[in-house]
């Protein structure tokens, strides 16, 4: 009988490793093929953005006027534009601009939106009313109109376009976080955190914030996609990146005059925008499924 009993010491020595919620989300994300493709596209453009200047076949602004508006060929894979610049090289350089605009503008709106959303959700009352009404007012404008207004106040430049895109996305994140905080605040583990004598600030950062992050990450990924489009739109309108920048939207705008004769000047930057946005959207959808608690058992 004694021989069958498991050795107590063995059990105690072995502290089992268990996957945390993030690891589990990663596991279910990996199973989603479409999302992995999206992540692959995002990874591809990210690498392009990081090492672009070293792999681009031609310089960013090397004008070669005799070779203007050339068709795609073995020398110029994606053709040349109206100043004879290699479009492939410019798209590779543009990846850095578009991705950093997308990424940093979303970081900006997440940080500001989260702070405002948390304050509104956790403290409630009049401060919630004020913040929420400001969000409502901002959301009442079409976002691109608001971005144009912000840029025209600050002056047209890539940096100001980034700020404008960050500003217009603040209410989306603010509302999201606020609603999440409102629901988590009522959870019993928050009451129990209070009952053990925890300070408000600590409850906020150790319990409420980590539990409200999942939808923000999803929304953030999707927002990078729309930020890239918005940056391109502002660039196209001449309110974002300025010549001779290789920002994709700016490239589309430059191609406008010649696109009947030389459609490749417009098609390839357009495809670059589309692919990046598609990649972020697919990845975001996959993350939504992976992080959504309702999808779990």
């Amino acid at each position: 009988m004694v021989g069958f009993a498991p050795k107590q010491t063995d059990i105690l020595a072995k502290e089992d490793k268990v996957a945390g919620p993030w690891k589990e989300a990663w596991r279910s994300f990996k199973k989603n093929k479409v999302a992995v493709v999206g992540a692959g596209i995002v990874l591809f453009f990210t690498i392009l953005a990081l090492i672009g200047p070293w792999i681009a076949p031609q310089g960013l602004n090397e004008q070669d006027l005799p070779n203007r508006l050339l068709k795609p060929s073995s020398e110029f894979w994606l053709g040349t534009d109206h100043l004879g610049r290699d479009i492939l090289s410019r798209i590779i350089h543009g990846a850095r601009i578009s991705l950093s605009v997308g990424f940093f503008s979303v970081i900006g709106s997440v940080v500001v939106g989260s702070i405002l959303g948390i304050i509104a959700g956790y403290y409630g009352k009049w401060i919630d009313t004020i913040i929420s009404r400001i969000f409502d007012i901002m959301l009442a404008f079409p976002s691109i109109l608001l971005a144009i207004a912000v840029v025209s106040v600050l002056g047209p430049s890539l940096q100001n376009a980034l700020i404008a895109i960050a500003v217009i996305n603040i209410p989306n994140f603010g509302r999201l976080i606020r609603s999440k905080v409102l629901s988590i605040k009522e959870e019993e583990y928050i009451t129990s955190a209070k009952a053990i004598g925890m300070r408000d600030v600590r409850i906020l950062f150790s319990h409420i914030l980590p539990n409200s992050m999942a939808p923000v990450i999803v929304q953030g990924t999707l927002a990078i996609a729309s930020a890239i489009i918005e940056a391109a739109a502002l660039g196209f309108l001449g309110l974002g990146a300025q010549a001779p920048s290789a920002e994709w939207g700016k490239m589309l705008a430059d191609a406008r005059v010649n696109f009947i004769n030389a459609p490749w000047t417009m098609i390839f930057p357009g495809i670059a925008i589309m692919l990046t946005v598609l990649g972020f959207n697919l990845m975001g959808d996959g993350m939504l499924d992976a992080l959504d608690p309702r999808m779990k058992n």
Binding site: P21, E188, T191, S192, I196, M198, N211
Partner: peptide, 29 residues
């Protein structure tokens, strides 16, 4: 004075390990 709550599913933070949950009162005080 400590409290034990009704719903054992809702009163533990799902993102914390048991160790972290139990350690918290000691850290707080």
């Amino acid at each position: 004075i400590q409290m034990v709550f009704q719903d054992p599913y809702a009163s533990l933070n799902p993102r914390h390990t048991i160790e972290k949950i139990l350690e918290e009162p000691l850290i707080v005080h």
